[in-house]
């Protein structure tokens, strides 16, 4: 371990309260927004208006929140007009207190060189059930597999790990978990690790 006295510890000692953290990002946004990324976000807002919500515009990253009914249309727009051609990653995030599960698509582009640094984050939320019956409850989202072929395995993984059924996905079988897994979807917050 190096012993550098000139580097101050980064973290502040005071406990960060949720209220104060929410005010923090707003002044930063007013100062400056990256130009290219702002342009991307504006194009999407211009097309869809209030149906999309721009969550943040950071250098190389733009995040768009949409409802489950609009996600397919927005994804088609991103592919056909803005040239995003593949999904880098699809993640699920469980929010039990909101009774929702978020599915986050990270989209990138190989063909458009101006977008090669960019990752467009497209997020939507599905209803979460307390006692899930994966595939047979209300936790459903439209699949983006017809729009971005590359989400095929990612969506299969989210179905088994979070119980989000993707309507229109041709192959909703298990991928990583055993075929006879009969417990809760393991990446949900209420699935606890033993001893922790």
């Amino acid at each position: 371990m190096s012993s550098d006295s000139d580097n101050e510890p980064i973290e502040t000692t005071s406990d960060v309260t949720p209220a104060s953290t929410k005010t923090n990002p707003t002044p930063e946004k007013e100062i400056e927004l990256p130009k290219f990324e702002k342009g991307l976000a504006d194009k999407i807002v211009e097309k869809f208006g209030t149906r999309v919500k721009v969550a943040f515009v950071k250098p190389d990253r733009v995040r768009i929140n949409v409802s489950r009914d609009d996600i397919k249309e927005v994804a088609e727009f991103l592919r056909d007009v803005l040239n995003f051609d593949h999904a880098e990653s699809v993640s699920g995030v469980d929010y039990p207190q909101d009774k929702e599960i978020e599915v986050v698509y990270h989209l990138g582009s190989y063909t458009d060189s101006s977008l090669s640094r960019q990752v467009l984050v497209l997020a939507t939320r599905a209803q979460r059930e307390e006692n899930p019956i994966p595939g047979n409850d209300a936790t459903k989202l439209p699949s983006l597999r017809e729009v971005f072929y590359s989400v095929e395995f990612h969506e299969r993984e989210i179905f088994e790990m979070f119980g989000v059924y993707f309507q229109g996905h041709p192959d909703n079988r298990r991928l990583l978990l055993p075929e006879d897994w009969a417990d809760l979807p393991p990446l949900r917050k209420d699935f606890a690790i033993k001893g922790r």
Partner: peptide, 13 residues
């Protein structure tokens, strides 16, 4: 290496 305090936290959501 920048020394960190133990248990560093993120800044909210």
């Amino acid at each position: 290496r920048v020394k960190l305090k133990p248990n560093p936290k993120g800044k909210g959501l």
